[in-house]
Amino acid sequence: MINAERISQMSHRIFNTSLNEKKTIRENSNNPFAGSKFQKNILTVDTFESSRNNEVKFTGNNITQSTKRIYSTFVGSINDFCKRFYNGIESIKEFGNRMKDGIVSMWNKVQDFGNQEVHPIEGIKNGLNDIKNILSYDVSSLIDTHVRKVNKLSKLDPQTVIKPMFVESLKALEEDLAVAA
């Protein structure tokens, strides 16, 4: 019964707006829309509700204004979740497409390889040649102790450090030559 009355009031308001609006000019109004939105036409009924009215029950199901806000937030979050879920599905689709492309290209390579007629002994020979080539790389330059020693010695002072070392080594060499003779 109460609901029926409210519906009738609402319809009255909707279809007879001019009856419910007063053209008034308020000075020092704290209405945030006073200057612009409604051109100083103030809606008298239920337009701006005070915070006290938040606890007013809307329906017979005991849903308050704050509960409604929480529900709307929840619904918004569901919408965001749906968007994220949709984006996730899109990324899965892209990943699948990439996988498919990769498999196709690999399949083509395998087919190309299969089309080449390789004699087994020739294949082994080629493999051995590859190993030989790898082993014949000049890696001595990477582990050359002489270059490392020279670079290290070149940073030392010639008179105080290198000269005594030179004299000592020369003396040892002369001794070795004397022993050998």
Binding site: H146, K149, V150, N151, K152, L153, S154, L156, D157, P158, Q159, I162, K163, M165, F166, V167, S169, L170, A172, L173, D176
Partner: peptide
């Protein structure tokens, strides 16, 4: 010879040593 190789290292280092006194060492000893 081990000591000869050590001398080779020393002399080679004196070639690239930026200190001009390296020439004096080469002249005096070598």
């Amino acid at each position: 010879n081990k000591n000869y190789n050590r001398i080779v290292d020393i002399v080679d280092s004196l070639i690239i040593n930026p200190n001009p006194e390296a020439i004096d060492v080469l002249e005096e000893i070598g």
